[in-house]
Design a protein around this nucleic acid. Structure first.
Lengths: 193, 193
DNA sequence: GTCTATAGGCAGATAGAC
DNA sequence: GTCTATCTGCCTATAGAC
């Protein structure tokens, strides 16, 4: 689903990959919509767990955002898209339950991002114009778009560069300026992305 | 293609829409790959023409970027995606000629954006960290992602808000700050799903 | 250029044995 | 749970008349 899309894979693909028959797959997931919905829910649960693990680290906002970006990078290296980014493109062809789950995934990510961004603003680590919710949405869109555009070029650096720049707009102005001068330095420091 | 995706529409859809037979469509476009490629090339040509018309206006960089954003907004209002954003998601399932055309579209957009951004920086209207090319790619990704995420919510305001914020990171700091104070007015948000 | 008719294949899905 | 066999339908694509 993350590579070929929901409309691009078939029961035969799964059966072939696992060395079982199509009928066996149907036994576990009667319809393709049920199969897609189950995979989508599992993906969403895993993502929620990953966000919770970031929260438990009690890091500052910039570090949390860096780890968030790493999730997307890890998805890309397998020639995959964020599952919900893929399904957002195919949205019009999806069943109602899948459509609802896709929106719920985005809602959860926006809410989490808004919380982190708010934390960063209160701590003085992030600075921006506009509401926290709007910034969270912009950021989510920028990451989904960056991974979408990086894949045709099979170039993870495109994604990382775009992600870093999208975050740079939120960093404190003076820090961002100094970070840009030494932006070739790996992501060890707090100010770099 | 822009609504259902390349793998989501069929010859029957086109024939039904036009009130002709499937065989007639095949007469003009023998294979689906040829049909998709022709539509893709037409879309790319139209976009190139639109960019040229912006250039002929001799506007300043921020105005050019605003008009660029309007193109994407106009696409979204018809429940459509940027064709190449859609095809980027389905990239792995496309024919080689279509894959090449998709990348060429992104290359052309990045080149055009880089030119405008460079113009804005020289004029002092835009300010940012990183190379012009990287900023152009970030911006293209942010717009593609913003339109991708706005569609499930059928909410053009989501796109416009994200696009404005993505551009805000490039505006001159003082201008951006004053602009953000004025933009606090339109806060009404009716989320229809 | 357009049509009807149809080929050939693969899709999602089901029946029923083991 | 897994299999073979099969159904039904839609898909892309072609043949050939008008």
């Amino acid at each position: 689903m993350q590579t070929l899309g929901f409309n691009g894979f078939s029961y035969a693909d799964i059966a072939g990959e696992l060395g079982i028959s199509k009928a066996t797959v149907h036994h576990h997931f009667p319809t393709k919509a049920a199969l897609g919905h189950a995979l989508l829910e599992r993906y969403s649960d895993n993502f929620r767990g990953a966000l919770a693990s970031i929260d438990m680290s009690n890091s500052e906002a910039p570090q949390k955002l860096d780890r968030y970006v790493e999730f997307y990078r890890d998805v890309l290296v397998g020639n995959r898209l964020c599952l919900c980014g893929m399904l957002a493109a195919e949205y019009s062809t999806l069943s109602k339950p899948m459509q609802d789950s896709v929106r719920h995934f985005f809602d959860a990510n926006e809410t989490w991002l808004a919380g982190v961004i708010n934390q960063g603003r209160r701590a003085g680590a992030l600075q921006f114009c506009g509401s926290v919710e709007d910034v969270a949405r912009m950021l989510l869109g920028a990451l989904e778009g960056a991974i979408l555009l990086a894949r045709p070029y099979n170039d993870v650096k495109r994604f990382l560069s775009a992600a870093r720049l999208a975050l740079a707009g939120l960093k404190d102005t003076r820090r961002a300026a100094s970070a840009s001068r030494q932006r070739r330095v790996p992501r060890a420091r707090a100010e770099t992305v």
